[in-house]
């Protein structure tokens, strides 16, 4: 499988993301944002974490107009699989590939720590190797990760099994670090080929570094 990891000015998780997918035995190409085409044979596009364009104006507001994004949007609209992590999730909502919007954390602080998540839906490529209602423990690191969607949009998300992950405590009880609507940490689009989450599975692939729960998440993309 060929994974294209897109690098914007200010992206800082591309090497971790490359490492994680290579550890899973996949080929990874780092693709600079000024490219206009994805590498031939791309199976998965990953928009990694970071602070593209310094978070100027709004997180990911400017990245969505980078030359490569036209190709990424076309790829997604043709059914290609896209994963947005953290700043990548923000890009996907800014580019309207995913519904809703991202706001400043409710406590106005940048939060960087491991946080348990509950698997709300695994009927999709991304989380098919995770057990329903099980917990995964992976890091979050964001200042603008408060997911917002209006009531009608939220209903639609649930109706279409688009709510994938929510924040919780070690026992699986609701715990909301950033003020996200319904503690939502990750969603997908209606067609279930575009996935976004604020937490970082690529930072949790070695037990010696705290957790390898990210492995079974990213493995979902590998046939």
């Amino acid at each position: 499988m060929l994974v294209a990891v897109i690098v914007f000015p200010g992206t800082n998780c591309e090497i971790d993301t490359k490492y994680a997918f290579e550890k899973l035995g996949q080929n990874v190409a780092l693709v600079f944002h000024k490219e206009e085409q994805l590498p031939q044979g791309t199976d998965l596009v990953v928009l990694p974490g970071g602070f593209s364009y310094g978070d100027y104006l709004r997180s990911a507001a400017i990245a969505k107009f980078s030359p490569i994004m036209k190709a990424v949007i076309e790829f997604a609209n043709r059914g290609g699989k896209v994963l947005g992590i953290c700043n990548g999730f923000q890009m996907l909502v800014e580019a309207r590939l995913l519904p809703g919007a991202m706001k400043r954390n409710e406590n106005v602080h940048f939060i960087s720590k491991f946080h348990p998540l509950k698997v709300i839906n695994n009927n999709n490529t991304f989380l098919k190797k995770c057990t329903l209602n099980s917990l995964v423990n992976i890091p979050i690191a964001h200042g603008e990760g408060s997911y917002y969607i209006d009531e009608a949009g939220l209903k639609e998300l649930y109706a279409n099994e688009q709510v994938l992950l929510t924040y919780c405590d070690e026992l699986g009880q609701v715990k909301n670090p950033n003020g996200s609507v319904d503690s939502i940490a990750g969603i997908c689009n209606k067609a279930k080929n575009v996935f976004g989450l604020m937490p970082h599975p690529e930072r949790a692939v070695e037990r010696i570094l705290g957790s390898d729960d990210g492995v079974k998440m990213l493995e979902g993309f590998i046939n």
């Binding site: 507001a61 400017i62 909502v93 809703g100 919007a101 706001k103």
Partner: peptide
């Protein structure tokens, strides 16, 4: 297109 995010 850019300056505001009209979702919020």
């Amino acid at each position: 297109e850019l300056l505001a995010n009209t979702v919020i």
